[in-house]
Amino acid sequence: MNAFETWIAFQTIVVREVRRFLRIWVQTLLPPAITMALYFVIFGSLIGSRIGEMGGYDYMQYIVPGLVMMAVITNAYANVVSSFFSIKFQHSIEELLVSPVPNHVILCGFVAGGVLRGLMVGVIVTLLSLLFTTLSVHHLGIMALVVTLTAIVFSLGGFINAMYATKFDDISIVPTFVLTPLTYFGGVFYSIDLLPPFWQALSLANPIVYMVNAYRYGILGVSDVSVGLSLGMLLALAVVLYLWAIRLLDTGTGIRK
């Protein structure tokens, strides 16, 4: 395929993905808005007012960046894992496999779909948060880079999960038993400085801590960890997961007999 045809193919996959999550917006865009609004009400307004300040900001302001990241992570992952597994399940993956679309384009198309849903949900959650608090952006570039890289990393994670999945249970195991605990222990609701040394050290092994803190730095200007290290880790993770996913596509794991 020449560059123009490749671009059309990429565009086609992305449009199909976006059309899919917009068509089922009640399942894809509305739930994170409701869940996060509840977090804002309960943790921010009701409990947060009793907690006082954290990291020099009132509790509500402190948790907003983490909650936005939580929504981005969950939705980027969920979009790709469910969309790709569903086309595997319905065998409509064959539409792509019989076509001349290069594997890199297939992967980039699905990841772009995940990133777009992640970012769209991120914007919705951010707008909702403005009903409860005020936000200023400390460093727009870092904020945008971190949220985009995070969405890419988790979209790739969702893609790999879908490649290996053979039944619907397989696409809920990682989000339930891996992503949710890592996110809750990822410094969304607290600064890891509050933890005892052992738990603080253990938290540093959780990549989500770096993502949440780097994003929080982009908005509030505070972080428990080095922002440079966070960006480096995100980039490294994106590269490793991309190579893993493309290898799976090249060998046809789970999609070609």
Partner: peptide, 27 residues
């Protein structure tokens, strides 16, 4: 290829199935 089993998305529109497939070929 016209496969043996139905292998298109059950939730897409007829027109979209055909146009999307063309897109995969860079049309």
């Amino acid at each position: 290829l016209v496969p043996q089993e139905f292998n298109f998305s059950q939730f897409e529109k007829v027109y979209d199935v055909v146009v999307t497939q063309a897109g995969y070929y860079g049309i």
